[in-house]
Simulated assay, not measured.
Amino acid sequence: MGRCFSSPTIKNKKYGNYNQNFTLYDLNWSYSRINDRNVKKLVKSINQCELVTKFDLNLSFNQITAAGAIKLGESLGQQLKLLEFSLNLEKNQIGDDGALKIGEGIAQCFNLTSFALNIVYNQISKYGIANIGQAISLCKNLQRFVLNLDYNQIEDEGVSYLAKGISKCKFLKYFAMTLKNSNLSDESAQKISKAIQELPTLRSFELNLKYNMIFNLKNHDKKYQKILRLVNYKLTA
């Protein structure tokens, strides 16, 4: 049973009298029967927080569609001071249009150092993931990056967009991505491995490609094997 909708609970880490003084926006509305209309109300609250540097929003297992995700993306695009961002939309129905708009919003957050996005089970294809890949490439200060895309239809072409974006994050230290059951082949594993080779500061990564058509995940060239010896890693296929 989901919880009834209520006003957002926001943690204020910079004690002030107005939303504009908040530096941390931390909200958990998972399993709460949240729909697009509720998201519209939430966005009004987010838009008042002009000084937010850390954004943690959990809206997993709700009833949010592309319309709600578009509103979220537009709001994120206004949070220009963000340093840390985490958004959980697992098991909604945002689709490609919603993913595209969220990508556009993230692309405006140039100062991000930590980025985590969970969009598992959201009917997203390679078209929807394209903007997210481009957004990652613009966040050049990223040090920590987590992306959960399980049970979508990303395909090898979608992974190409992601790999290209990841390779631009030259300060990345930690990287984790899950792509279970995403209609991928060995080509995707190769593209991700090449992207990893472009990350000179990387010290730890996790990659989960279970339930795809991956057969040669660990059989890469000597340069890649050298990279693996330099970092803590976990590969699953």
Rank of each mutant, 00 (worst) to 15 (best):
S6Y: 02
G103F: 03
L199H: 07
K180G: 12
P200T: 11
M213D: 14
I119H: 05
N21D: 15
A116W: 01
K223L: 12
N208F: 02
K218D: 15
L83D: 14
A135K: 07
A107E: 04
Y151L: 10
I132R: 05
N38G: 01
E206A: 10
I124K: 06
I154S: 05
C49Y: 02
K71F: 07
D150R: 09
L179R: 00
K81M: 14
L202Y: 10
D221H: 11
N212A: 13
A195I: 08
S7V: 12
G68F: 13
M1Q: 10
L228P: 09
G77H: 02
Q123C: 05
N219M: 13
G128C: 06
G16S: 11
Y224P: 01
L80C: 04
N38E: 05
K180S: 09
Q78H: 15
G73P: 03
T178H: 09
S193D: 07
V146Q: 12
N232F: 10
L72Y: 00
K54D: 14
A163W: 05
K14L: 10
G98E: 08
L83H: 14
S137V: 02
G68H: 12
I136K: 02
G133E: 09
K170H: 07
F61S: 12
A237D: 11
Y18N: 15
P200F: 12
L209S: 08
K170Q: 11
S167A: 14
F145D: 02
N208E: 10
E90F: 03
Q143S: 14
Q93L: 00
G133R: 04
F110T: 08
K191F: 09
E155Q: 15
L138W: 00
A99R: 07
K173T: 13
A66I: 05
G165Q: 13
S185I: 05
G103L: 01
K164H: 11
F5I: 15
N47Q: 13
N62L: 00
Y161P: 04
I129Q: 01
E90P: 00
E104S: 06
T23K: 07
A189P: 10
Y151C: 06
I129L: 00
A163F: 04
S185F: 12
N111W: 11
L57Q: 00
Q78E: 14
D36E: 03
N19K: 05
L162M: 11
A130T: 11
K170T: 09
S32K: 01
F115W: 02
Q134I: 15
L230Q: 13
Y127I: 11
